[in-house]
Amino acid sequence: MKYAYFPGCSVHHSTAKEYETSCLAVSKILGIELEEIPGWNCCGSIDAVYAYDPTASLALAGRNLLLAEKISSNIVTLCSACFFTLSRARRMLQNDVSLREQVQKMYNVPVSGEGVKVRHFLDILVNDVGYSEIAKHVKVPLRDLKVASYYGCLIVRPPGLGSFDDPEHPKSLEQMVVNLGAQSIDLPDKTRCCGASLFITHEEAMVEMTRRILGNAKAAGANCIVTVCPLCQFNLDAKQTDVEAHVGSKFGIPVLFSTQLMGLAFGLSPRELGLNKNFVPLHSMLLNAGEQVVEVVVAHK
């Protein structure tokens, strides 16, 4: 089945490029057919655009849904925020006819959303591909790796908007980790918000919110965190040194995208997976991952 692929801004040409790189790489192996939506625009950004101009936000989302419908009945995104924005916009446009008409009239875009379902890439992996199929492709079991799964907020909340896992105690990512051969570490507050775009407007809050997650991961004995959202990954990874400075202690925990972790297990090289783009050095983590991983790293050096 072909999916209409919506990269979202961070993933496509910004802070989370490696998410797309690794995603495309594992998709090839798993036979997931992603076709990028031509001419896609910003998802409508939950709040950044919406608070300024709600109809513009809905128009942006609606246009994407419309373009996606031409390719497939499923629009897939890597970014949790995009996933939420598109889902919510779809529901608002479907339920409120006058709103839909208003948006259509203002922007001359026949928005709808009826024909397309919005899904997160993790949902595809878990429900369309399946754990056992994923496990089949594992060449390098990440045996000694202790992975804490951090979901973030919008992939599991609010319930009923297209989320595919429990909003309070999701298990899909942890199950994925186990199927990749790694050890899954229970991470307290694994769905608690990292602060997202507060990093631009209220860094102090974001730093503390992110610190909690890093602190929990460290206390739980994880040697890396796996995540599914570019905003989360950025705050946890690129801003980790800022958090360390704020707290006065080191974390040194690498933060990987789910597809990067998966790619490692599939035997792909760190370079192929964009692991060189991560901020927090991965060296010790990779060493901890087990002999085979080290071999892979060395082979591709």
Binding site: I46, D47, C153, R157, P158, P167, R192, A196, L198, M209
Partner: peptide, 8 residues
């Protein structure tokens, strides 16, 4: 931050 913990 629109994290939706409250609404849930």
């Amino acid at each position: 931050a629109s994290c939706y913990a409250c609404t849930t």
